[in-house]
Simulated scan of single mutants.
Amino acid sequence: MTRPVLRLTVHGTPGPQGSKNLNAAGAMYESSAAVKPWREAVKAVALDALHHDAAWSPLTCPVLLEMQFSMRRPKNHFGTGKNAGRLKPSAPNFPTSKPDLDKLTRSTQDALKDAGVLADDSVVAHLFARKVYVLWGDALLTPGAVIKVWRLTDLHKEESP
């Protein structure tokens, strides 16, 4: 498989986008306070990467996005007292609590669009996303995400005889 055209490692707490709340005045706002800092972190890392590629222009071709979100484990997954810092045997292997994976991908795709990686998030034709806990397998050591972008046109050329 070809190498991705862009690989980003973003550190910070992944923030979901999509759920809205109403305030007392009737105005809508994001229910997650983490979405704005997350989008800014993704945008900053993407802009820094694109700064080193003077020929880059926002992708308008079909793209494949791969996102792996590394999430912090809740404190109740760990023992207490002499077992402090030890993972409980009952602790789940995969994060199945909020935030929702689709809402994490939504905020991340919007940040990639804002940074000029994508012309629009509608160009994403294939999306592979997963949530893992930090320090599990190939996860990051701290919360964040690894984002990879491929041009599907490049992958199609590779498959042609």
Score class of each variant (00 low, 15 high):
Arg3Trp: 13
Arg7Gln: 10
Arg7Pro: 00
Arg7Ser: 09
Leu8Thr: 02
His11Pro: 02
His11Ser: 14
Thr13Glu: 10
Pro14Asp: 02
Pro14Thr: 01
Gly15Ser: 04
Gln17Cys: 07
Gly18His: 02
Gly18Phe: 01
Leu22Ile: 11
Asn23Trp: 10
Asn23Pro: 01
Ala24Asp: 00
Met28Thr: 15
Tyr29Lys: 03
Ser31Leu: 10
Ser31Gln: 06
Ala33Cys: 12
Ala34Arg: 10
Pro37Phe: 09
Trp38Gln: 11
Trp38Ile: 11
Ala41Val: 08
Val42Ala: 03
Val42Tyr: 04
Lys43Ala: 08
Leu47Val: 11
Asp48Thr: 06
Asp48Tyr: 03
Asp48Cys: 02
Leu50Cys: 04
His51Gly: 04
Ala54Ile: 06
Trp56Gln: 04
Trp56Ala: 09
Cys61Gln: 06
Pro62Glu: 11
Val63Trp: 05
Leu65Glu: 05
Gln68Ile: 07
Gln68Trp: 02
Phe69Asn: 04
Ser70Gln: 05
Met71Tyr: 00
Met71Trp: 00
Arg72Trp: 13
Lys75Thr: 11
Asn76Arg: 09
Gly79Glu: 02
Gly79Phe: 03
Lys82Gln: 12
Lys82Leu: 07
Lys82Gly: 03
Arg86Asn: 12
Leu87Arg: 07
Lys88His: 09
Lys88Tyr: 04
Ser90Leu: 09
Ser90Cys: 08
Ser90Asp: 13
Pro92Ala: 06
Pro95Ile: 08
Pro95Phe: 07
Ser97Arg: 09
Ser97Ala: 14
Leu101Phe: 00
Lys103Glu: 15
Lys103Arg: 14
Leu104Trp: 02
Thr105Tyr: 00
Thr108Met: 03
Gln109Lys: 12
Ala111Trp: 15
Leu112His: 06
Lys113Asn: 06
Lys113Trp: 15
Asp114Val: 05
Gly116Asn: 05
Gly116Asp: 07
Val117Asp: 02
Leu118Asp: 04
Ser122Asn: 10
Ala129Trp: 04
Arg130Ala: 08
Lys131Asp: 03
Tyr133Ile: 11
Tyr133Glu: 08
Val134Arg: 01
Val134Cys: 15
Leu135Trp: 07
Asp138His: 06
Ala139Ile: 00
Ala139Pro: 06
Leu140Cys: 05
Gly144Ala: 00
Gly144Ser: 01
Ala145Thr: 01
Ile147Met: 00
Lys148Ala: 15
Trp150Tyr: 12
Arg151Ala: 07
Thr153Asn: 09
Thr153Ile: 06
